[in-house]
């Protein structure tokens, strides 16, 4: 029975997202929204690791996303296109299909390294310290990019459209959706594995009682830094995807407002619920699009809706439960390794 689990689910979503886009059944706008949903899922799921499972409070996810966005788009634009920033292309366009995923990866690594810089001093003490540091990181990132004139400074950076086009010219395929889809699956896969392993679940123990964790041999400092880097690295990859989706980025795109949206999606879904994160990323992205006709009032309606939701459901959509807890019958197909092991022992 097990083989009908995850692969089937992934296959079905693949069919519904990518094949119609490929065949041209989806308009560009719908493709854009699908990509955006995917990016938001990555961001939400990854931030949930810190703010949900670990119970810390990071408000700087957009900055890490921005590091990834700038790194990967600088790379692709520099290597593959003729542009006003760096001049002629260095590599032939045909390599874009290869360079693009590599640049995403490098963007993620850059974001992870940047987060290490933040994490080392931040996790010395508990409490709201990380919130403060990451808040400052938002300002530092924006201010730093604004001061680098070579990449456009506050005016922003562009040229990623050409890269995407180059890929499409080579092989007509919805590359962005494809890569977004892969990264979404990858993010959920590794985070789910992590939080369901003894090593990863220890971050929940840290949230619950840090001193007890430390005394029960958990290397809390190392674990917190690792989880933070993992989360920020994924945000960096999402940033790379985002930059190539919107094709024009400026420092304000990765400022506090963006961080706030990611936070909202995490808490809307529920702290420590992966399926909640996925659901809330989908709902929130679509909601923002549906409210688009409201123009400025959209930005009034969204927080208002969320405040009302918080008042009626103060633990988010899913609380800390997963979809599996809501539909216990599915457990047969999707339960985690640890649950299976435990059940096997209880039965024997």
């Amino acid at each position: 029975m097990k083989r009908f689990g995850m692969p089937t689910l992934i296959g079905i979503s693949f069919l519904f997202c990518i094949v119609p886009s490929w065949l041209g059944w989806f308009s560009n706008y719908i493709q854009f929204i699908i990509t955006l949903i995917g990016i938001n899922i990555i961001l939400t799921v990854s931030l949930n690791l810190i703010n949900g499972y670990m119970g810390e409070f990071s408000v700087g996810h957009a900055a890490f996303m921005g590091v990834g966005a700038y790194t990967s788009s600088l790379l692709t634009v520099y290597l593959l296109t003729e542009n006003p920033f760096f001049g002629k292309a260095i590599l032939p366009e045909e390599l874009s299909i290869l360079i693009f995923p590599i640049s995403l990866l490098i963007g993620g690594v850059a974001a992870a390294l940047f987060s290490l810089l933040i994490a080392i001093p931040s996790f010395r003490t508990r409490g709201d310290y990380l919130a403060i540091v990451t808040l400052a990181v938002n300002f530092i990132f924006k201010s730093a990019i604004e001061n680098i004139d070579a990449i456009g400074g506050p005016r922003g950076f562009m040229g990623m459209g050409k890269v995407v086009k180059a890929m499409d010219n080579l092989v007509s395929f919805p590359w962005l959706i494809f890569w977004t889809f892969l990264v979404v699956v990858f993010s959920i896969f590794i985070i789910r594995n992590f939080v369901n392993s003894t090593m990863g679940k220890s971050i929940v123990a840290i949230r619950d009682d840090e001193i007890a964790s430390e005394l029960m041999t958990v290397n809390t400092r190392w674990l917190k830094i690792v989880a933070f880097m993992l989360s920020c690295g994924l945000a960096g990859v999402a940033g790379g995807l985002h930059a190539h989706t919107v094709t024009f980025i400026n420092p304000s795109s990765y400022f506090i407002l963006q961080s706030t949206y990611i936070l909202v999606m995490v808490y809307l879904g529920g702290m420590g619920s992966l399926s909640g994160s996925v659901i809330s990323a989908i709902v929130f992205t679509i909601l923002l699009e549906l409210l688009r006709p409201l123009d400025v009032w959209r930005w009034v309606a969204t927080p208002l809706l969320l405040i009302i939701l918080m008042l009626f459901r103060p633990t988010g959509i899913m609380g800390s439960r997963e979809l599996l807890d809501v539909f216990p019958k599915l457990k047969k197909y999707f339960s985690s390794l640890q649950e299976r092991l435990t059940n096997a022992f209880i039965k024997s």
Partner: peptide, 30 residues
């Protein structure tokens, strides 16, 4: 000071932290 949000078995498993042999990458990639 048990971890109240984790089941009894998880409480015991996590106390194994220093004894697990697998590395971070093992836990990410199953």
């Amino acid at each position: 000071r048990l971890w109240n949000e984790l089941s009894v078995i998880d409480n015991l498993r996590i106390a194994h932290f220093s004894q697990i042999d697998y590395k971070l990458l093992d836990s990410l990639f199953f």
